[in-house]
């Protein structure tokens, strides 16, 4: 079975703060932007279209020097929120890589 990865939709505009700790995100079919700050911005920055959910959580756990199970719920909650608006989409790992 092909592994699925999360990537930012092509219809998204975003503005990163200089330190990467904040991202203003607008799905261009939506009316208003959302702001991701702190750990939420870290999740966004890690959505590079190459990591599966498991790899994403392990990467963030390593970044924050914590255990994967500790952050699993929060990360998946954000992923579900972003995917429900079409801001991020899942696709096979080898598809659309640039």
């Amino acid at each position: 079975m092909t592994e699925q990865v999360w990537r930012v939709s092509s219809d998204v505009a975003c503005v990163h703060s200089a330190d990467g700790g904040r991202v203003a995100v607008l799905h261009l079919e939506q009316h208003v932007p959302v702001i991701l700050a702190g750990t939420a911005a870290s999740v966004w920055n890690a959505l590079d279209g190459t990591r599966t959910e498991k790899e994403l959580i392990e990467f963030l756990a390593h970044e924050y020097a914590t255990e994967a199970r500790t952050i699993h719920g929060d990360v998946m909650g954000l992923i579900h929120t972003l995917s429900s608006t079409g801001t991020i989409t899942s696709s096979p790992r080898d598809e659309g890589a640039s």
């Binding site: 219809d11 904040r22 203003a24 261009l28 932007p33 700050a37 750990t39 939420a40």
Partner: peptide
């Protein structure tokens, strides 16, 4: 995660630029 953050003006101008381009 997340929270009630306010959109900064510089962010708003850049995002609105992208929005106008997309809508056009």
């Amino acid at each position: 995660m997340g929270g009630a953050e306010t959109l900064h003006q510089d962010e708003a101008v850049l995002l609105a630029t992208a929005l106008v381009d997309y809508v056009a």
